[in-house]
Design a protein around this nucleic acid. Structure first.
Length: 423
DNA sequence: TCTGGGGTCCTAGGACCC
DNA sequence: TCTGGGGTCCTAGGACCC
């Protein structure tokens, strides 16, 4: 190589090849894989939640939609098979699906339980297959080994790969080349593009942009002028310029931990609302301890019947994942934000500014000494709970939230009584 | 007392995703 | 989709500092 060549950074910008794989009606797909007799039947999951979480294509054809109350499904569509969610199995199948992709691809981003991206760029030569053949192999192996239907997209960017995998569903395999991207985008409503939600779609609609092609045809300067950075990225990606990297670092750290629950009917009952928050604080702290994370602050919120948020942000004097500490601070704020006569439908807690491996420093006022005692207790409780394989111990302030759940569950209430202990 | 210009850090809130 | 639960990222604006 001559000096001039090496100087002029002769990095040929090779187009990337990105694969996106998306499970078809994943939860229901797993249920069918577990029990093939269900194939071809209208099936929904979500029995335990009281609303439809996932549904088979046959169920969709009947007019059932996600979020529909289970009682309505029972009443209006008695032929439908209603199943409780089996999250363990979904995770298991998900892992197996990603493992199949990893047989061919090193760089895999697990985007959600039923979706991943894979970086195929340059793998055609070593694998001795075309990119399309690699995708076909992956698809066939998932189909045959897991009895699972998936749709795959192949394109030069993540955003286009998402468009592609969505193009033919279920059981599709679609390639979008940069040359033909515009033709595809003509038939895609702008709100269907990954990263463009209802707010931005509406804003764009008002400016006459209704299809992804309309957006594609705009000048980048125009995009910059009226939208923010993420939308510039989307525009570039639609044009085949890969900006978004495949993020294969496996996800073990969280930057926040959230627990929320809605209930029906909405209520103003202070004791009940507080016990819900109490449970959320306990559950979120438990999760934080499990991942060895400690929040520096946290927020509590109430959502009104009309979907209005009221939140309170609380700074911890010293980082802690002991619920007792958070509870005492949260209680004051709860008193502040709870308004008489307002009906609430949801409560929630978010742990924020999570630090890892926190070792409490002693301070002059001994507040950390207090925290340490709680920490010791919780460590012991966590060990105990792990041994029994289920949660056995809650604080007294949480009791009525648990009782409420038992009421709703009906048959579980005996079980719950036997295995729960309140401090 | 008033006047600049420019940098960093933090926060609240908005928007999005599955 | 009249709306479940769990997340992430970006940005405008304020505080504070030369």
């Amino acid at each position: 190589m001559s000096p001039s060549e090496s100087n002029t950074s002769t990095i040929v910008k090779r187009e990337k090849v990105i694969l996106h794989i998306d499970g078809d009606a994943f939860f229901v797909g797993v249920e069918i894989a577990k029990n093939p007799k269900l194939r071809g039947l209208p099936v929904v999951t979500g029995q335990e939640r009281g609303i439809v979480s996932a549904l088979s294509y046959e169920a969709k054809a009947l007019g059932i939609i996600r979020g529909m109350p289970i009682f309505r499904v029972k009443r209006e569509f008695p032929m439908v098979v209603i199943l409780p969610g089996d999250y363990r199995a979904y995770v298991e199948y998900s892992t197996k699906m990603f493992d199949i992709v990893r047989r061919y691809v090193d760089d895999v981003e697990e985007y959600s339980i039923d979706e991943c991206f894979g970086e195929l760029t340059g793998l055609d030569k070593p694998l001795g297959m075309s990119y399309l053949q690699i995708a076909e192999r992956i698809k066939r192996e998932v189909n045959e080994e897991l009895n699972l239907s998936v749709s795959i997209g192949l394109a030069s960017t993540k955003v286009l790969a998402k468009v592609a995998s969505n193009w033919v569903k279920p059981n599709g395999l679609t390639v979008i080349e940069n040359k033909t991207a515009a033709d595809f985008l003509q038939k895609v409503p702008i709100k269907k593009i990954w990263g463009i939600g209802p707010r931005t779609a509406e804003q764009l609609n008002r400016k006459g942009i209704t299809t992804a092609k309309d957006f594609y045809d705009k000048d980048i300067a125009w995009i910059k002028l009226i939208l923010s950075k993420p939308y510039e990225t989307i525009w570039q990606e639609l044009h085949g310029v890969s900006i978004m990297e495949i993020d294969s670092a496996s996800k073990t750290v969280y930057s926040s931990i959230q627990k929320t629950r809605s209930f029906h009917p909405s209520t103003n009952d202070k004791t009940f609302l507080w016990s819900q928050l109490s449970k959320h604080i306990e559950d979120s702290c438990r999760k934080a301890r499990h991942f060895n994370l400690v929040p520096k602050k946290f927020s509590i919120f109430l959502k009104t019947k009309d979907f209005e948020f009221v939140t309170a942000l609380i700074l911890l004097p010293s980082p802690s994942n002991s619920p007792e500490i958070l509870l005492s601070l949260a209680h004051v704020q709860f008193e502040n934000i709870h308004k008489r006569g307002v009906l609430y439908r949801t409560t929630g807690v978010t742990l924020l500014d999570l630090m890892t491996d926190f070792v409490p420093q002693d301070d002059l006022f001994g507040s950390n000494t207090r925290a340490s005692k709680f920490e010791i207790i919780h460590k012991q409780i966590d060990t105990l709970e792990e041994k029994f394989g289920k949660i056995v111990i809650y604080l007294g302030s949480t009791k009525s939230a648990i009782d409420h759940k038992a009421d709703k569950g009906g048959t579980d209430s005996e079980d719950l009584d036997k295995n729960l202990l309140f401090l």
